[in-house]
């Protein structure tokens, strides 16, 4: 076994362990930290897959912004007793059986769906191909950028005109999601909408 395979298996085992730790967490803060560990290990795998730009985005967005959001909400709602919120025995057995069947089917399908011969055959038909620049250090003959580098991702994102429209739509989606989060979180008992302007701090003394 060469070092890259050994590294992959170590990271993969850690990822599965952190995923189980997250799903089976008794303390919600521990669950969030296990999730962050899983996302950081995913970024390591992205680096192994020649995707440094996606690895950086993964760290910034998932291990940064989303972790802060989850931790903030967990701290805001306070520590809850998770041991009381477990399902009954029958439901648990059915759930585990369903997941085992789904997992074995998925593993079989996706592992056999792209065998080595098929991938090599497909890659030979395409330009740019893995054989052309996919390995470490080999560059794109046209632009000189390495596969997966920020330069190449940026060129794919901005040079082809049909990627500009989804890019702008996603920015619109983020704006709508931000406004929706503010509106939803301030709705209900004790929120800004229910409290009204007369209960704002600083105005009650007037």
């Amino acid at each position: 076994m060469n070092p890259e395979m050994a590294f992959f298996y170590a990271v993969a085992l850690l990822m599965i362990a952190t995923a189980f730790g997250m799903v089976l967490a008794r303390d919600m803060v521990h669950g969030v930290l296990f999730m962050v560990g899983n996302f950081v290990l995913t970024a390591v795998l992205y680096l192994l897959l020649n995707a440094p730009f996606i690895a950086a985005v993964q760290l910034i967005v998932y291990a940064g912004a989303i972790m802060v959001l989850f931790l903030f909400v967990v701290m805001l709602l306070g520590a809850q007793d998770l041991s009381l919120s477990e399902p009954a025995g029958g439901r648990r057995i059915i759930g585990v059986a369903a997941v085992l069947i789904l997992g074995s089917l998925l593993t079989f399908v996706v592992k056999e769906g792209l065998p080595a011969g098929t991938a090599a055959g497909l890659a030979e038909e395409r330009l740019p191909t893995l054989a052309a620049f996919g390995r470490e250090g080999v560059e794109d003959p046209q632009s000189g950028a390495a596969f997966g580098s920020p330069q190449m991702v940026g060129e794919a994102l901005y040079r082809e005109p049909y990627h500009i429209v989804p890019f702008e739509l996603v920015s619109l989606l983020l704006l709508v999601a931000m406004m929706g989060a503010v509106v939803i979180a301030s709705f209900g008992k004790g929120g800004v909408a229910a409290a009204g302007p007369e209960q704002r701090p600083g105005e009650d003394s007037a």
Binding site: F8, A12, M15, I16, A19, F20, M22, V23, N38, L45, L49, G95, V96, A98, V99, L100, L102, G103, L106, T107, V109, V110, K111, E112, G113, L114, P115, A116, A119
Partner: peptide, 18 residues
């Protein structure tokens, strides 16, 4: 690539379990 596919299938199943 099949190894990465199998790993992500396992992780997806753990997510379904949760």
């Amino acid at each position: 690539p099949g190894h990465f596919m199998a790993l992500s299938a396992i992780l997806f199943s753990i997510g379904v379990l949760g």
